[in-house]
Amino acid sequence: MLNVLITAARNFVKNYFVATIMIATLAVFCLTCPNFFSINNLLDITKQGGLLSLLALAMTMVLIVGGMDMSVGAIYDICTNFCAGMVISGYGVFLSVAVSVAAGLGFGIFNMVMIVFIRVPPFIATVGTMFVVTGLTFAYNKGQSILLSNQPLFFSLAQGATLGIPNIAIIVAVITVVIYICLRRFRYGLYMYATGGNSMAAKAAGINTTLSQLIAYGMSGMLSGLGGALAASYISGSFALGSPFEFLITAFAAAFLGSTLIRQGELNPLGTVIAALFITSLNNALTLYGVSFLILPGMQGTVLILALVLGNWGKKQTGQMTIF
């Protein structure tokens, strides 16, 4: 009986090496850091990780079709501002969020048009969008952060909970499951992977690679937009101007780390979210340890490198990176 368990454990470790390390790390945190395992802390992690997950999911969609979206952070920023601005102007929660998502979709379409129809390399196109969006953010908030107060309904969106579960967690969970099902179960999901895996083979098989890319960039924009709206709710307002690169690394890290969690090393939404939560836990634990927040950015970079190396050891390339 013990033998069976040991063999099962060994197999698990072999196949899910990275997951094992993650579990072990979390265990270490729980054991050595008293505050980590508290309910409040865990809820915090869930909420912050949820926001990050949306960005990471956006990046994942685009990476799946073999593209790249440098503008997710910028879209996230501007939608935070849009949403906060609309709420202050009294447009109501639903409309504000809807407009944010629509704005995200709009920027996603802008990316799509450049990449798919004008055939600009994804990196350049999305960097261009990043510039434009950053500029628009500035134009919109004139360099001031927007402060919200006395918006209980709006705040409850990201800061509240239903039946004890944080709302953000519910929203992200639902979205993740929906995306997961669509990718696995429907033809168009499969075709997105095919487009990223070998677009020539996909085209030769009659697959509409253009449609796959349209879906990916559109979804990326929408998810970033939704993330921005929820962020506005979470931090009760918006920041003046973030750095364009700030979220990109974390989004990449979560996407690639998530891809190492399943046997085949494919990018997948579930893995991405789990990785995003793990990275958030990492940041959180390190802060609790009293490690100065100064180190945190470097940590994420290291995590990404490790994810890339471990997850792709032995394989020839890092997934489907067609940057230029």
Partner: peptide
């Protein structure tokens, strides 16, 4: 042959 490397044989 033109294959999608990350898909399995059946797919």
């Amino acid at each position: 042959p033109n294959l999608v490397p990350m898909f399995d044989v059946a797919h």
